[in-house]
Nucleic acid binder design. Structure first.
Lengths: 137, 137
DNA sequence: AATTTTGCTTGCGTTTTGCAAGTGCAAATA
DNA sequence: TATTTGCACTTGCAAAACGCAAGCAAAATT
């Protein structure tokens, strides 16, 4: 999971080369919508990622400039993962996935509620959330 | 590749369960931006998908209502694959991937040119392209 | 009638995944 | 001070998925 082979010059292909699997965008999701993100926090997510897969995905995301590691303010044993600006820029894409899923799946109430807000002013939501994420990084 | 196991109720997770791999969205890309899409046409794409993987992904996408098979007007031996409305609805997401990649990768000139147009009026582009795709299906 | 095209399927070796257990270090506890 | 606990990974191994090449049946072409 160290070096990535680029399959073509297509932007979709190049993007999928980095985060095109079943787990990477779930990590990004947690970094966007959860409060804190330590290694253990990722493991606690509903989808139950295996610990070795988590480690490999975190490394790939870090290598490709999507996330960075930070010391935890309260403990030297903990590591805080955060999105880089490049990672924060995945927010519009993440919201479109949410909106697509909202149209075709039954979602949890609380997520549904958030998406109703988003639909009222998508650009505004993304702008504000982007600022909040950048401030946190 | 027949039945999909839903890992959680999260919309991101549910979406990735269907098309979260290195190949599915490349098939959707071809269906959105290439003229014709037969089985052989998919195989000709730059990324060189293996024929058995292609078959399994086409089946998954069809099973999940993203694409449908159609007879070819000129030949009974050929099969035309087309996006369903649910598949066409992936266009906004696809464009956000393009725009993200445009910001962080070097893209082919012609794709870059298209994206310049998109940036001028993203909603307009998506609206028109959606109509064009729905008319074709 | 024979050959080619098209849309797949099948076999098989390689890679990736998933699960469980283990390791090393910092911090908390006794 | 010694020991236990918590945290961030690593390792081993079986199972699943992938990638490549070859094969196959039906339709189209020659």
């Amino acid at each position: 999971m160290k070096d990535i082979k680029k399959r073509s010059d297509c932007p979709i292909s190049s993007s999928l080369d980095i985060w095109g699997d079943k787990w990477s965008l779930l990590i990004v999701r947690d970094l966007m919508f959860a409060k804190e993100c330590t290694y253990g926090d990722f493991l606690k997510s509903d989808e139950k990622i295996a610990t070795n897969i988590l480690a490999s995905r975190l490394l790939t995301l870090e290598t490709n400039g999507i996330i960075t590691k930070h010391g935890h303010p309260e403990s030297k044993a903990k590591v805080l993962y955060k999105l880089t600006p490049k990672g924060v820029d995945l927010l519009p894409l993440m919201m479109e996935i949410n909106l697509w899923a909202d149209k075709y799946f039954a979602l949890p109430k609380e997520r549904k509620a958030m998406l109703e807000e988003v639909k009222k002013d998508k650009e505004g939501f993304i702008r504000e959330k982007t600022i909040a994420l950048l401030n946190n990084s």
